[in-house]
Design a protein around this nucleic acid. Structure first.
Lengths: 118, 118
DNA sequence: ACTAGTGTTATATGTATATAATACACTAAT
DNA sequence: ATTAGTGTATTATATACATATAACACTAGT
């Protein structure tokens, strides 16, 4: 995985895992790899991985059983809300930033259309 | 100005200034406020403001005359390229992230449409 | 009981960011 | 020449992030 240097790695890892959960690459209720394994996979220090996981737990996306492992939440409402929130954030950012650059709504459509044709 | 805690302040300031240049709030060739004044306006330390400005100069967006002040570049090609690059980056990010969340192209249109109706 | 595999915590080190305070270097107007 | 207003540079301090290394705490299977 490539890391953006301007944003903390643990946040980028959280985002990656959230995407995998939302797209059911990691289905609800499923066990996720141990922090040590994940740290190796993400090529990152154990503490950094631990931070990502504990934040994900704090957000309710995963839950943890000490000595056993971590699991994707079973709460479907949480997962639906997560997907909504992530896409909502993306489109809001896109629109507001484009407006700040002086683009009209029609231009936004056109630019999106053009990008998708690639 | 509100700052996002996850990305360096000097980068956020650079982005703000670039937007003002692209939208001609700061027209080409125009003098921009001194680093000291800007530091106060952006409620930031002089050194942080200086970093933002020197990076903007390195990118060719502004140019500086020691003892005199800093000015928006006169090079219209640079300004056009800047706007293109910024909007291109926005739409690319939007599309690729939405894909990673599992949305289809049609869904992207719909979500954008819905957001703009607000 | 033991052990291997979990999550969790702690200490030390290096780097980047941001602030604070101070000084230096140049330009234009007086 | 002096001065006020520019950009520029230096040093010190604090904080967040990431790493390295080591240890602690819990669980399940043997």
């Amino acid at each position: 995985m490539k890391y953006n240097t301007t944003v903390p790695i643990y946040l980028q890892i959280m985002d990656r895992i959230k995407k995998d959960i939302v797209t059911e690459v990691l289905p609800k209720g499923e066990r996720i790899s141990s922090v040590r394994v994940l740290a190796e996979q993400f090529e990152v220090n154990l503490n950094t991985m631990q931070r990502a996981c504990s934040e994900l737990e704090r957000e309710g996306v995963i839950f943890t059983q000490r000595g056993v492992g971590s699991f994707v939440t079973n709460d479907e409402a949480v997962l639906n809300a997560l997907k909504e929130k992530m896409s909502g954030s993306l489109v809001k950012t896109f629109v507001s930033e484009m407006k700040e650059l002086g683009y009209s709504e029609n231009e936004m459509y056109e630019i999106l259309k053009k990008e998708l044709k690639k």
